[in-house]
Simulated scan of single mutants.
Amino acid sequence: MTRDDEAPTLAADEQLLVLPDDLRHELKEPMGPIETDAERLLEAVDGPVIAVGDVVTYHLLQAGHRPDVALVDGRTKRSAVDEEIHDAVTEGASIEVRNPPAELGAPVVRALRRALATDEPTTILVDGEEDLVALPAIVAAPSGASVVYGQPDEGMVHVKVDDDHRAEMRDLLERFEGDTERFWALLEDTDDGA
């Protein structure tokens, strides 16, 4: 993991999308209901679970449910998570990628797609920031899957993936800066060997 003053960077051909400043306010609103109890949240789950964030992943693990896909970066609210959380959520991490803050790079998009395609629970350890990966996860996950991410100081946001959520996330991602055409090709193409 990088130190705070060493933000990870990607080669130009690996950088896909960057969050523009004028979209940040839209991402502050939760995309689904907020739950503070992981066991109660899990009662509403009947498909694969994609967890975005260390604390969310930890709470799901504590409730006895290993997410099908977990994305963690060792941080919460811009600070390092405590050792107990870090050890629990990184145990068995199977993919490590770089993804700079406020960006969606090719490595994390490929890792997300690979994790969604496998039958084994997969933890993606992100050097940088994983927060924005909730957006492409909602687009790429199968209908009925649950994408769960943290809402700072409020709880866990539970998005049950359906066509309406996918359309909303597609629209949002289209408004990012960068190579949206290549982003969609990487997220949706299953034949490029990634």
Results as ranks from 00 to 15, higher is better:
residue 47 G to R: 06
residue 49 V to A: 12
residue 52 V to S: 13
residue 52 V to C: 14
residue 53 G to Y: 08
residue 54 D to H: 14
residue 54 D to C: 13
residue 55 V to A: 07
residue 56 V to G: 00
residue 58 Y to N: 15
residue 58 Y to S: 15
residue 59 H to T: 07
residue 59 H to N: 11
residue 60 L to D: 02
residue 60 L to R: 01
residue 61 L to D: 04
residue 62 Q to F: 00
residue 62 Q to L: 06
residue 63 A to W: 06
residue 64 G to S: 10
residue 65 H to Y: 09
residue 66 R to A: 14
residue 66 R to Y: 04
residue 67 P to R: 06
residue 67 P to S: 05
residue 68 D to W: 00
residue 69 V to Q: 07
residue 71 L to H: 09
residue 72 V to W: 15
residue 72 V to Y: 15
residue 75 R to F: 12
residue 76 T to Q: 08
residue 76 T to V: 06
residue 76 T to F: 06
residue 77 K to L: 14
residue 78 R to W: 14
residue 78 R to A: 13
residue 80 A to C: 07
residue 81 V to A: 07
residue 81 V to Y: 08
residue 82 D to H: 15
residue 82 D to S: 12
residue 83 E to S: 03
residue 84 E to S: 13
residue 87 D to H: 04
residue 88 A to Q: 10
residue 90 T to M: 07
residue 91 E to Y: 04
residue 92 G to M: 05
residue 92 G to R: 04
residue 92 G to L: 08
residue 95 I to D: 01
residue 96 E to H: 11
residue 96 E to R: 14
residue 98 R to N: 14
residue 100 P to G: 11
residue 100 P to V: 14
residue 100 P to D: 09
residue 100 P to T: 14
residue 101 P to N: 14
residue 101 P to K: 12
residue 102 A to L: 01
residue 102 A to P: 02
residue 104 L to N: 00
residue 105 G to M: 09
residue 106 A to T: 08
residue 107 P to Q: 10
residue 107 P to H: 10
residue 107 P to A: 08
residue 107 P to I: 05
residue 109 V to I: 15
residue 110 R to M: 07
residue 112 L to E: 15
residue 112 L to S: 13
residue 113 R to C: 03
residue 114 R to F: 06
residue 114 R to M: 08
residue 115 A to Q: 00
residue 116 L to C: 10
residue 116 L to T: 10
residue 116 L to N: 09
residue 116 L to D: 09
residue 119 D to C: 08
residue 120 E to G: 02
residue 120 E to D: 10
residue 121 P to K: 11
residue 125 L to K: 01
residue 127 D to A: 15
residue 128 G to A: 03
residue 128 G to M: 02
residue 128 G to C: 02
residue 129 E to D: 12
residue 130 E to H: 05
residue 131 D to Y: 05
residue 134 A to G: 04
residue 135 L to G: 00
residue 136 P to D: 11
residue 138 I to A: 01
residue 139 V to E: 06
residue 140 A to K: 00
residue 143 S to T: 08
residue 143 S to Q: 08
residue 144 G to D: 07
residue 146 S to A: 10
residue 147 V to Y: 05
residue 147 V to M: 09
residue 148 V to N: 03
residue 148 V to D: 05
residue 149 Y to I: 01
residue 149 Y to A: 04
residue 151 Q to H: 12
residue 152 P to Y: 03
residue 152 P to H: 06
residue 153 D to C: 05
residue 153 D to F: 07
residue 153 D to Y: 05
residue 154 E to S: 14
residue 155 G to M: 11
residue 155 G to F: 09
residue 156 M to H: 02
residue 157 V to P: 09
residue 158 H to S: 09
residue 158 H to N: 11
residue 158 H to C: 09
residue 159 V to R: 11
residue 161 V to L: 13
residue 162 D to G: 11
residue 165 H to L: 11
residue 165 H to I: 08
residue 166 R to G: 10
residue 167 A to Q: 15
residue 172 L to S: 02
residue 174 E to K: 02
